[in-house]
Design a protein around this nucleic acid. Structure first.
Lengths: 254, 254
DNA sequence: TCAAAAGTGTTACGCTTACACCCATGG
DNA sequence: CCATGGGTGTAAGCGTAACACTTTTGA
C-alpha cells in the first residue's frame, strides 16, 4: 500500500444516493426528487446527500431513506435487525468519475432500497417536490433523448438507476428479496405480480404457486385469507426465514 | 437531495483496496503486502492506495494493480477494452466505517481482480515485501485469532477479502469468469481445477467437460493440444465471447 | 349465473448426476 | 504395459413448462 500522508491526501466529498424501488399499479417505480438549484436545476434526480463526519455509509443511506420516505430500513448487515416495518437496503456501487459533479470531486456510494407500495411521497422536511416515476419511462428517456434532455435524470443518475434496476431484477431470481416489495402479509398472486412488474413478463400462475409454496422456508402461511384481489379467497403469507431461493426462480427469456 | 454546500462538506480521503485472487498449486491465493508503518506496522494488508485528484475509481484500481503485479487490467466497463494481456477487474464494494482507519476518515472502494498464476510477486516500486497467501489461511486466522492477532490482516481487510472471495465464488457459477484465472490457452481440466480450487470441492471431470464444451460461446478450441498435465493430450481452448453461463454451473453442496 | 382469481393433477421434456467405458500419451 | 488424465455413452432422477381441470368468492 502506498504510504498514507494525512496532510497530502486529495480531499473528496462523499455522498450517498438512493435507488428506491417499489411496485405501483403493475409498474416498477423509483423515487425521484426535483433539484432546486444548479447544476441541473429543475431536473429530476435520485434522492441523496452528504455522509456525515461520524456516520457509516449504511447509516447515511438509512437516514436519507427515512428523511425521504419515512421508512425504517432493514439493514441485513446491521448487528441486530431493526424492527422490520421498513424496506430492504443494501449497498449498490460507488460512482466517482472526476467530472460527475461539475463543482467539485464527489464520490457517491449508491444504495438500493426496496419498499412496499407507499401511500405517496411525502414532501419531506425539505421543500422540494418528489414523485414515484416508472423506471421504464426514465430509462427510455435516457436512451432516446440523451443525458442533456431536460427530462433526463441529473448527473450520472440514469446510470445508477439502471444498475440498481438490474441488481433488483437479477437478485429476485435467487433470493426472497421480492417479498420486500410486498406488505407484511401478502398472497401468492400479489407476489407473482411483483415478479411480473419487475421483470416485465407474464408468469404462469399455477407453476409460480407451486414453486414458491414448495420451497421450504420461503413463505409461511399466517392462517388468514383475503379476497382483496377478487376471486376465490387466497391464503395470506409472511416472508419466511429463507433468504436464498434454490433452485432459483427462472426468468423467462424475452 | 440535500443542498450541496461546497464550503461545508466533511472532507474524506478516498482509497482503493485490491483483492487480487489467483490459483496457485490447487489453492485460492490473494496478494498481500507487508505494512511498513503505523498503524498495523508489520501486519499484512491488501494492496491499495489513494485515488488521485483527476482519476476515476476504476483507473485508480488498475494503476495500483499494475504497480503491484505488472498486470494490465481488463476493465469490462471501460469504453474500449484494453489489450487483454491481463486480469479481470471489477468494483467490489465500498467500506467507510468512521473508525476503520484510526488516523482519519477514509472511505475505501474495494476492487476485485482475478489473475492467472503469476511467476512471483515482484517487489514493486515500493520497497515493501509482498506474497501470495492462501485465502483459507488468512480467513481462518481472522476467525480463530480475531483481528488483533499479529497474523491477521490490517484494518477491515479480512472483511474485504471475505467479501471478495464470496463474490468470486458465486460469480463463477453463472459467468465465464473462471477463465480469468487461466492462461490465454488452457485445457478443460485446467479450468476444472480452477473451479475446484475456488470452491474447495471435487467435480466430476466427465460431466464438467460436457457442461463447458456444450455451452455455446463459452470455449473456443484453438486447434492445439497439450500434455502438460500428463495423460492423453488435451485440446486447448481460449475463452469465448459468452460472458454468461446459462444454465449456471452447479456448485455441489458441501 | 358468470367472471375472476386460487389452487391441484398430469405429462413431456431438458438438464444434471452417476458411472461404465474407451482413447492417447509418458515413463 | 500400466498409470494418468482426456473424452464419449447411457440411464435414472429431479425440476420446469404447458395446460386441463376444480374450487370459491363477488357482482
Amino acid at each position: 500500500m502506498s504510504p498514507y500522508d494525512p496532510s497530502a491526501f486529495p480531499p473528496f466529498a462523499v455522498t450517498v444516493d438512493l435507488v428506491v424501488l417499489t411496485v405501483r399499479s403493475h409498474a416498477l417505480c423509483t423515487l425521484v426528487v426535483r433539484r432546486g438549484e444548479a447544476p441541473f436545476q429543475g431536473r429530476w434526480a435520485l434522492p441523496g446527500g452528504f455522509v456525515r463526519d461520524d456516520e457509516d455509509l449504511g447509516a447515511a443511506a438509512a437516514r436519507e431513506l427515512a428523511e425521504e420516505t419515512g421508512l425504517c430500513a432493514h439493514d441485513p448487515s446491521a448487528p441486530q435487525p431493526v424492527p422490520d416495518n421498513g424496506a430492504h437496503l443494501e449497498q449498490l456501487a460507488t460512482y466517482g468519475a472526476p467530472e460527475r459533479d461539475p463543482r467539485m470531486r464527489v464520490v457517491s456510494v449508491a444504495h438500493l432500497a426496496l419498499a412496499p407500495d407507499l401511500p405517496a411521497p411525502r414532501p419531506g422536511g425539505d421543500a422540494h417536490s418528489a414523485r414515484w416515476a416508472p423506471v421504464e419511462e426514465l430509462l427510455d428517456q435516457a436512451r432516446a433523448a440523451g443525458s442533456d434532455s431536460p427530462d433526463a435524470l441529473a448527473f450520472d443518475h440514469a446510470q445508477i438507476l439502471s444498475d440498481g434496476v438490474e441488481r433488483a431484477r437479477s437478485k429476485i431470481e435467487y433470493s426472497s428479496l421480492a417479498t420486500a416489495f410486498c406488505p407484511p402479509e401478502f398472497t401468492v398472486g400479489e407476489l407473482r405480480r411483483v415478479y411480473e412488474a419487475v421483470w416485465g413478463v407474464s408468469l404462469d400462475p399455477r407453476n409460480f404457486h407451486r414453486k414458491v409454496t414448495g420451497t421450504p422456508g420461503f413463505l409461511v402461511p399466517t392462517g388468514g385469507t383475503t379476497t382483496r384481489q377478487g376471486g376465490r379467497p387466497a391464503q395470506l403469507f409472511r416472508a419466511g426465514g429463507a433468504t436464498l431461493l434454490n433452485p432459483p426462480m427462472l426468468r423467462p427469456e424475452v
